[in-house]
Simulated scan of single mutants.
Amino acid sequence: MNQVISTILNHRTIRYFEDKQLTDEQIKTIVSCAQAAATSSFIQAYSIIGIKDKEKKKRLAELTGNQEYVEKNGHFFIFCADLYRHTVIGEKEQRNVTPALESTEKFMVALIDTSLAAQNAALAAESMGLGICYIGGIRNHLEEVKKIVKIPDRVIPLFGLAVGYPTKITDQKPRLPLEHVYHEDEYEQDQQKFIRQLDEYDALISSYYEKRTEGQRTDRWSEQIAQMLSKQNRMYMKEFIQKNKLDLQ
């Protein structure tokens, strides 16, 4: 097993960081690694906003659900799907790019490009001995986030990435069994087999939580996910996307 694979397989979410800021060189390295990710048709449809200002980090922590590690970390990155620069390119080159930029396809490209870049950044940080935590809560209050980081239309903050020096290393949370995720030649649709695999995984996750919380928590993965999906969350996203001139034609 080489070092890259070892780093990937050793991933776990870190929520407790030393009060030690990343250096500008570390930040530059992480962003450069993000930029090295694959990008659809070389469109590079993302931007990364680094937050150093303490008051902004504090406010973002509040907006993301009072997540302390958004405020207290080595550096906080916000990854944005970005088609604004492509609007500028259209004006610069005197070409009508609006229909393409407002298509579902280009919206998906921007989401995918941003995600690929972010995962490169996360792996780079972890390879440097740093810990990371993705912050989906950045989407809880996007209008407020947009004002704080002053983003233009056609730019959507997708998630944050808290990076820093870990003070507490948690156990690695077990993932779904490989055979439940990986299909060969066609999608496996034997529902009884599917349920058996889920039952086995539920037992594993329940045991993980029981051990981690000393018996205070024993919920199953299926139970956890069904409960989450039964509640409506961030239902304003379509309106926000359209308001920001990504109309999904």
Rank of each mutant, 00 (worst) to 15 (best):
M1G: 09
N2V: 06
Q3A: 12
Q3V: 11
I8F: 13
L9D: 00
R12H: 15
R12S: 07
I14R: 01
R15W: 01
K20V: 14
L22H: 12
T23Y: 10
D24H: 14
I27V: 15
K28E: 12
S32F: 10
C33Q: 08
C33M: 11
A34F: 07
T39R: 01
T39Y: 04
S40K: 00
S41A: 14
F42Y: 11
F42T: 00
F42V: 01
Q44E: 08
Q44A: 02
A45N: 04
I49V: 14
K54M: 12
K57P: 12
K58L: 14
L60M: 07
E62A: 06
G65H: 07
G65D: 06
N66Q: 10
N66V: 05
Q67N: 02
V70R: 02
E71K: 14
E71M: 12
G74R: 02
C80R: 00
T87R: 11
T87W: 07
E91D: 13
K92Y: 13
E93M: 12
Q94W: 00
Q94G: 01
Q94F: 02
T104D: 07
E105P: 00
E105V: 07
A110Y: 06
D113Q: 00
D113N: 04
A117C: 01
L123W: 09
A125T: 08
E126N: 11
S127E: 08
G129K: 06
C133F: 05
C133M: 03
C133I: 04
Y134C: 06
G136H: 03
G136L: 03
R139F: 03
L142D: 03
E144Q: 12
E144W: 04
E144P: 03
K146S: 15
I151G: 08
F159L: 14
G160R: 09
L161Y: 10
L161S: 09
G164V: 10
Y165P: 02
K168V: 08
Q172W: 01
E179I: 04
E179G: 10
H180E: 06
E184V: 09
D185V: 04
E188S: 08
Q189C: 01
D190M: 03
K193P: 02
F194I: 02
L198K: 08
D199I: 04
D202R: 09
D202V: 06
A203D: 11
I205W: 02
I205Q: 08
S206Q: 10
S207E: 15
K211D: 10
R220T: 13
W221S: 08
W221M: 13
S222H: 03
E223W: 03
Q224S: 13
I225L: 12
A226R: 14
A226V: 14
A226H: 10
L229S: 07
S230H: 12
K231V: 12
N233E: 09
R234K: 13
M235L: 11
M237I: 08
M237H: 04
K238W: 00
K238P: 00
E239W: 00
N244W: 11
L246V: 12
D247F: 06
L248F: 12
Q249E: 15
Q249A: 14
